[in-house]
Simulated assay, not measured.
Amino acid sequence: MRAAHRAFPGPEGEVATWRRALVGGTSAWLLSRLLVTTVAVATQWGATGSLLGGKPFVDLLSRWDSSHFAAIARDGYAPDSTDVAFFPGYPMIARAVASVLALWSADPVPVALAAVAAVGGVVATVLTWRVVEVGSGVRAAEVATVLFVFGPYAVFLHASYAESCFAAAALGAWYAATRERWLAAGLLSALAGTVRPNGLFLLAALGVLYVVRRRAAGRRIVAWPAVGLATGVLGWTGYTTYLWALTGRWDAWTRAQEFGWGRRTQAPWDTFRDTLQNVLHHRLLSARPQFLLDVVFAALLVAAVVYFLVRRSWAEAVFVGLTAVSLMTSSTYVSLARNTLPLFPVWAALGSASTRHTTGRRVALVVLVVGVALCVANTHQFTLGRWAD
């Protein structure tokens, strides 16, 4: 992605690009939603004989972590609960929305969670189009957006999960940074940091982008704009401080990860070994193919980092690289593949490559075909409450 090195259009051109992003991005998201919803409804019908399996429509894509987000939105955090492993941005926004919806609904939290995730998905998709078009042109934006919304784990753009909100905040921060609006970039990065812990990786990448752009322009690196960008740390530090006040421990989040889900930091070769054990011997048969996909996606993440380094796309390499290191030094690769969804530099690079040469177009086509197939399969599994990472 080369958005940082391309001239921006004038006012009239900017209005036109925003209009294209809004129409193109929203249309792509709606088509993705149609696919995911159709698969989910068909899955429920096949499994239960009922279109929604006897559940409200808003619960169709509410599984696994969704119950933790719902508990946080309803009751907040308890000092002894492993729910503190989930960052507060998404459920707290849903809680605010639910307080309004409570005027019409007896149980507004599921509706609020679904609505906030949907808005986050639309915003993330529109911003994907906008960022890529400014950097690489309309055709690249079309390809990148389609790959994003029909990717292997696109179900999590629509499920009651935090991925869509994180992607929206992260893309907003990146776009602000490419416009050299460093305070806005910092504040949006802080928002991303309240949604997911990898907001810190985003902030590190934005810091690299800041240095690269300032040096290229012959400006001082130590300057007031750096202070604005530094506000990005407030999201993560704010939640960490809150947990210290709640539990009396600075490591409350990592302890919750360990005791709730067995996550701990270890050597990457141990993580690889333990993941292979899950591929071969996990007690849930439906989990074994997913762990295999996690291994495949780990290799793809490494390839993506190498690609960005070769192209001297330093900020993109930092964002994807730190995410990869974090996931590949956990107890296993669990959720690694799902975490590729908000790694927008990858989708942007694929879109850009598709406009430059035949190989890029072929790779993009293969990614799309495989992505749609896996999206259908993962939506099917997720709807049934089986393993979907």
Rank of each mutant, 00 (worst) to 15 (best):
G260Y: 01
A256E: 08
A204G: 01
P225Y: 13
E258M: 03
D270W: 03
W250S: 11
L183P: 03
A205Y: 07
V227W: 11
L191D: 12
A226N: 12
P225K: 09
V222Q: 11
L206S: 09
W269L: 08
T265Q: 08
V208G: 07
G248Y: 03
L243I: 04
A192K: 01
A192D: 04
V195T: 10
T247S: 04
A204N: 03
R263G: 00
L203M: 04
A204M: 09
A205I: 11
L202M: 06
T194F: 10
A184G: 10
A204Q: 03
Y210M: 09
G238C: 05
R255A: 07
G228P: 04
T247P: 01
G232Q: 12
A267Q: 08
A252W: 07
W236S: 10
G232R: 12
R214Y: 06
G186Q: 11
G262S: 02
V211C: 09
R255I: 07
W253C: 00
L188F: 05
N198S: 00
Q257W: 08
L229E: 15
G228Y: 04
G186C: 09
W261H: 09
A204C: 06
G232F: 06
E258T: 05
R220D: 15
A217Y: 10
Q266V: 06
L234G: 02
A184T: 15
A256K: 03
P197W: 08
R214Q: 14
T247G: 00
G218L: 13
P268S: 02
S189F: 04
G186N: 10
W244K: 14
E258F: 01
W244M: 08
L183F: 13
D270P: 00
W261C: 00
L209H: 15
Y210I: 07
G218N: 14
L202F: 03
L209M: 15
A184Y: 04
G186Y: 05
Q266G: 05
Y242C: 01
A217G: 12
T241A: 15
A192V: 03
F201Q: 11
A185T: 13
Y239H: 01
P197F: 10
Y210F: 15
A185W: 13
V212K: 13
R255E: 15
A256Q: 05
A205F: 06
G262E: 02
T254F: 05
D270G: 00
L243E: 10
A223C: 11
R196E: 00
W236F: 11
L234W: 06
G235H: 10
R214V: 06
L202E: 08
E258H: 04
R220H: 12
T247N: 01
G238M: 05
V212S: 14
Y210L: 08
A184F: 04
R249A: 13
P197A: 11
L243V: 04
A185H: 12
Q266I: 10
Y239N: 00
G235Y: 07
V208L: 05
W244L: 12
V211M: 09
L203I: 02
G199S: 01
V211P: 07
G218M: 13
A205C: 08
D270M: 05
W261Q: 09
R214E: 14
